[in-house]
């Protein structure tokens, strides 16, 4: 079995190395990835089209908005599926496994976390809201926000974290995030454009077409951030407790 599995592995390896000799050299500015009309358009026109300094955010939320919307839906569906798979799989407080021990939350750890968590959450909002201008955006800010709740669950126990962000609220926030994203897309459809054509939002926003795209991108990123925050925490809460939603790590 093990020896036989080496055959496809080495076959794939040979093909990939064989193909690698035709790939562009490291950092070659003439390589197709760097010299294609698509990337030149993104780099050259982002400032004119959307007035967003961070091209990554502009491509993510505007030019490839449809793709990003369904990436967010994938994250949401994965979280829902984890919930569905693990819900009621083990009865609450039934069998105690070997690694589960009773321990008081540590004084030093909990006090440090008490100091750190607000800073982490403010930083998450900064990364989310500043995603146009500096590295950041909905996915990154959402992950940082979710990490702050995971930190609470790690240092106290899961009940403490769930009292602040219960699983029902989690799924509500995750669904609301996708509704915000799709709602902005559909709203721009009602205003006469195409789905996710943010420029049409100029009719309701007191700004130019370019700045309408700029602000709509922020709305979309907030939607992504909500979904990612909720799903990251829901994943941790379910996986760490086998769906029981109680106890420490």
């Amino acid at each position: 079995m093990k020896a036989a599995s080496m055959v496809p592995v080495f076959l794939v390896g040979f093909l990939l190395v064989f193909a690698a000799t035709d790939f562009p050299e490291w950092g070659n500015p003439q390589s197709p990835a760097s010299d294609s009309p698509v990337s030149s358009h993104f780099i050259g026109k982002t400032g004119v089209d959307t007035e967003v300094p961070n091209m990554v955010t502009a491509v993510l939320a505007d030019y490839r908005g449809f793709d990003t919307m369904f990436e967010t839906v994938v994250v949401f569906i994965a979280g829902m599926a984890v919930l569905a798979i693990l819900k009621n799989s083990v009865k609450k407080g039934s069998v105690r496994r070997d690694h589960e021990v009773d321990a008081e939350p540590d004084l030093i750890v909990t006090n440090m976390v008490r100091l750190i968590v607000p800073v982490i959450q403010i930083f998450a909002f900064y990364v989310l809201a500043h995603g146009h201008v500096s590295p950041g955006g909905g996915f990154q800010g959402g992950v940082i926000m979710g990490a702050s709740f995971i930190l609470i669950a790690l240092s106290w126990d899961l009940e403490t974290a769930l009292a602040r962000f219960s699983l029902n609220r989690c799924m509500g926030v995750a669904a609301a995030g996708i509704l915000i994203y799709a709602g902005i897309g559909i709203f721009s459809m009602f205003l006469g454009g195409e789905f996710l054509d943010y420029a049409e939002l100029e009719r309701v926003l007191p700004v130019s077409r370019e700045m309408a795209r700029y602000h709509a991108m922020l709305g979309v990123e907030i939607g992504v951030g909500c979904t990612v925050t909720a799903i990251m925490f829901a994943l941790y809460a379910n996986l760490s407790s086998e769906g029981k939603l109680e106890g420490g790590l």
């Binding site: 990835a33 760097s34 294609s36 698509v38 990337s39 993104f42 780099i43 091209m55 990554v56 502009a58 491509v59 993510l60 490839r64 793709d67 990003t68 990436e71 994938v74 994250v75 994965a78 979280g79 599926a81 984890v82 798979i85 693990l86 799989s89 955006g137 996915f139 990154q140 959402g142 992950v143 990612v228 799903i231 990251m232 994943l235 379910n238 996986l239 086998e242």
Partner: peptide
């Protein structure tokens, strides 16, 4: 630099975490 690879991998990492969580849930079950 070309922003497109960064965009694609940015979403791929987060979606990868979510799908890995789903896979772990299935193996837990």
């Amino acid at each position: 630099a070309n922003p497109l690879p960064h965009v694609l991998m940015l979403t791929a990492i987060v979606v990868g975490v979510a799908t890995l969580g789903l896979a772990l849930a299935v193996s837990l079950r």
